[in-house]
């Protein structure tokens, strides 16, 4: 169960001709997830900054 299913890196990338499908799906999904996290983090920062500016003593 824990033996690696491929013999070398080229096999991992190529996956017998299916690598293009497998890797493209994972890379795009991971990119979407990462971008979503970055947007959410930036939004929190932005909201906090706005609240601070609004309530700053003049």
């Amino acid at each position: 169960m824990f033996d690696i299913a491929f013999n070398n890196v080229n096999e991992i990338i190529g996956m017998n001709g299916h690598g293009i499908y497998v890797w493209s799906v994972y890379s795009i999904a991971i990119s979407i997830l990462v971008v979503s996290f970055l947007i959410a983090k930036n939004r929190i920062k932005g909201v906090k900054r706005k609240i601070k500016i609004k309530n700053a003593p003049s």
């Binding site: 299913a5 991992i12 017998n16 001709g17 799906v25």
Partner: peptide, 18 residues
């Protein structure tokens, strides 16, 4: 990397994990 390839679909089935 570690799961065996599918008998019918080969390695393309690995998309299942996503």
């Amino acid at each position: 990397l570690f799961a065996p390839p599918d008998a019918v679909q080969g390695n393309s089935y690995r998309i299942i994990f996503l």
